[in-house]
Design a protein around this nucleic acid. Structure first.
Lengths: 121, 121
DNA sequence: CAGTATCCTCCGGGATACTG
DNA sequence: CAGTATCCCGGAGGATACTG
């Protein structure tokens, strides 16, 4: 259990959830993996803005937190497959809800933004 | 719209959700506000680990992102009330799900931890 | 009471170069 | 292909002192 998660556990269960899932790219990774196993390079192409080092770390943390499973094939060229654990799959509804909320938020925020512009402009 | 949120919007709706809700304390604040309006000091007492400066910033960001509403009473001693906007209230189910997931995670992680201990110890 | 101002530290995340 | 090593920067979050 990572330190951030332990601290969160002292506070509130929802805080635990954000400690595990809150990193940049993490929930998007989970969202993609919900559709099936992916190799490292495939994830990289799906997330063009994420660097290899960052992507690696996010995946390692998700692995350490028991959300994703990492399978290394001992071959040349190397091949590593990422998939969700049962814990990861249990996020399906939450991810779908957050996706809807985020979509809705984007349009709502666009209107907030317009009003803010009228205030300041 | 905060920069972090804008960046997230370029990536995926779920990333937007974590950009808005991902800060330390934020979802816990929302969880408490779902039960009713709270004053600044009350939130502070509910979150003893959060400093005043941090709490203030989280609340301001939530306000800027249209999740919470801040109402200042022009009186001495000062009084400020925080409540959820419609956007904030729309998080009710998500917060409940994350709370359940976090609770379940804590017990599942305890067992992962035991196994990890057996590996490394 | 509800903050602000100032300073500080830690670490997430990115850029680049290199490797088994 | 799937990383690691190294360096760097910005920003989140905390401690303390002060204020309208």
């Amino acid at each position: 259990m990572r330190k951030a998660v332990e601290t969160a556990a002292q506070v509130c269960p929802v805080e635990v959830a954000v400690a595990v899932l809150g990193g940049t790219w993490k929930l998007t990774i989970v969202k993609y993996l919900l559709e099936g196993t992916l190799r490292f390079g495939e994830l990289g192409r799906l997330l063009p803005l994420a660097g290899a080092r960052t992507l690696t770390r996010q995946l390692r943390e998700l692995e350490e937190d028991g959300v994703v499973d990492r399978k290394v094939f001992a071959q040349v060229p190397p091949k590593v497959e990422y998939s969700l654990t049962a814990l990861g799959r249990s996020l399906e509804n939450i991810v779908a809800d957050l996706d809807r909320w985020g979509t809705n938020y984007a349009s709502a925020a666009a209107q907030l933004g317009e009003r803010a512009q009228q205030k300041s402009g």
